[in-house]
C-alpha cells in the first residue's frame, strides 16, 4: 500500500480543464518529481494536495487518511514556493519557529527544535537576519526549514529552485536531496527543468496538459521515452516521423512505427565511409554547426534538409570536423526507438 494516493483527480478553472483524471501513488520516503512545461497543471496538482485549491472530482489520501476535504492547516503537509514566501517582518529564527508557535509548543521545545534545524540547513549565526538580508538560496533554505520543523507527512516543493541562478540551483538541489534522504521525507517536487528532474528524483511523473504522460525512474524516462511528447521534452532527443524520412538518404529504417526517437549521444559519426553495420540505420549528411558543451561536442548535421543532433565526447580526433564536412551517421538498431505519437 502506497503512502500517498491521488485517485482520478480532476480540476477545472471555469472552462479550462487543468487536471484530467490524474492518478498517482507515492511510497513513503520517496522523492518524486512532477515534470512538465509551464501551464500543464503541476502547481494545481500540488496545491490540491496541500488543500490550497479544491478539486472537482477524485480523492487524495496520505498515510491511509483521506484528506480530500480537510483545510490546509489540518493536513500537516509542508510546502515551499518558488518565491520563498518568507514572512518579511520576522527574522530567520521566528520564520522557522512560526509553525511550532501555532502548534502551541513551549518556548523551550521550540528553541531546541529550531536550533537543530538551523544547523541542519547550515544557517548558524544567521538567526537574527531578516529575509531581505539573505540571498535567494539562503531564503529558500529558511523556507525549507520552516516547513520541515513541523515534521510534515509530505513535503511539497513548487519549483523551489527556479528563481535562483545556475550555480546555487545545483548546490541547493543536492542539499535538498541529502536532507530529504536523511529525514526520509516523502517529497513531491515540481519543476519544468528536465535536467533537475533527472538528477534529483527517485521517480518522475511527466505531465502533459493535465494528464500523466509517463511514469518511471530517471533512467527509464531518459533512455526509453514512451511518447513523442516525452522525447521532445527530455533533453535533445532527435524526433522524426516516418513521413519526414521518406525519400532521404537514410537506410535501414525498420518497418514498424510512425515516430522515432534517437538520443544524440547514441549516434556514431564517421568520415571514412566504412562497411554498414549489421542491423543499424545509416544516414549521410553534412556538418552545419559545431558547439562545445563542456567535454561534449555537439554537431548539427543536415541530412538532405533533416536536422540531426549528434553529441560526441571531445578528444576522439573529431575536432577537425568543421562545418561543411560530409559525414555518415550510424545508429545502432536498439537505439532507434519507436515511440507513441503525440497530438
Amino acid at each position: 500500500m502506497s503512502f500517498v494516493h491521488i485517485r482520478n483527480v480532476s480540476k477545472s478553472f471555469q472552462d479550462n480543464k487543468v487536471l484530467n483524471q490524474v492518478s498517482l501513488s507515492i511510497e513513503k520516503g520517496e522523492f518524486v518529481t512532477l515534470l512538465g512545461p509551464s501551464g500543464c497543471g503541476k502547481s494545481t496538482l500540488l496545491r490540491s494536495v496541500a488543500g490550497l485549491n479544491d478539486i472537482d472530482e477524485g480523492s487524495i489520501s496520505v498515510g491511509g487518511m483521506d484528506i480530500t476535504h480537510l483545510p490546509p492547516k489540518k493536513r500537516n503537509v509542508g510546502m515551499v514556493f518558488q518565491s520563498y514566501a518568507l514572512f518579511p517582518n520576522m527574522n530567520v529564527y521566528d520564520n522557522i519557529a512560526f509553525g511550532l508557535k501555532m502548534d502551541g509548543l513551549s518556548k523551550l521545545d521550540i528553541r531546541s527544535i529550531v536550533d537543530d534545524m538551523i544547523s541542519l540547513i547550515d544557517l548558524k549565526g544567521k538567526e537574527d537576519r531578516y529575509p531581505n538580508q539573505l540571498s535567494g538560496g539562503q531564503q529558500q533554505r529558511v523556507a525549507l526549514a520552516r516547513s520541515l520543523v513541523k515534521k510534515p507527512t509530505v513535503l511539497l516543493l513548487d519549483e523551489p529552485l527556479s528563481a535562483l541562478d545556475a550555480k546555487i540551483r545545483r548546490s541547493l538541489r543536492n542539499e535538498i536531496r541529502l536532507i530529504q534522504q536523511r529525514l526520509k521525507m516523502t517529497t513531491i517536487f515540481v519543476t519544468h527543468d528536465q535536467e533537475e528532474a533527472l538528477t534529483i528524483s527517485d521517480r518522475i511523473f511527466v505531465m502533459n496538459q493535465g494528464e500523466i504522460e509517463q511514469v518511471g525512474s530517471p533512467n527509464d524516462i531518459y533512455t526509453a521515452p514512451a511518447s513523442e511528447y516525452v522525447a521532445r521534452f527530455i533533453g535533445n532527443y532527435n524526433v522524426w516521423s516516418r513521413q519526414q524520412l521518406q525519400g532521404l538518404p537514410v537506410r535501414g529504417v525498420p518497418e514498424q512505427g510512425d515516430v522515432f526517437a534517437v538520443r544524440p549521444e547514441a549516434i556514431r559519426m564517421e568520415t571514412g565511409y566504412g562497411d554498414e553495420i549489421e542491423g543499424g540505420i545509416v544516414a549521410d549528411g553534412k556538418v552545419t554547426m559545431v558547439s562545445i558543451l563542456g567535454n561534449i561536442l555537439r554537431f548539427e548535421v543536415d541530412v538532405s534538409g533533416l536536422p540531426v543532433t549528434v553529441d560526441m565526447l571531445s578528444g576522439q580526433s573529431i575536432e577537425h570536423l568543421g562545418s561543411g564536412t560530409p559525414v555518415r551517421l550510424v545508429i545502432p538498431r536498439d537505439e532507434w526507438k519507436s515511440i507513441r505519437k503525440s497530438s
Binding site: A50, L52, P71, P72, K73, R75, V77, G78, M79, F81, S83, A85, F87, P88, N89, M90, F98, G99, M102, D103, A143, R146, S147, K150
Partner: peptide
C-alpha cells in the same frame, strides 16, 4: 502576498493569526 497567507495556513495559522502576526505588522 498570497503565498504568505498560504504558507501561514499550511503552518497552522488561522486568518486572524495571519493578520495579527504578519498582515498588520507588514
Amino acid at each position: 502576498k498570497q503565498e504568505w497567507k498560504e504558507s501561514a495556513a499550511l503552518l497552522g495559522a488561522n486568518t486572524w493569526q495571519f493578520w495579527q502576526r504578519i498582515g498588520v505588522p507588514v
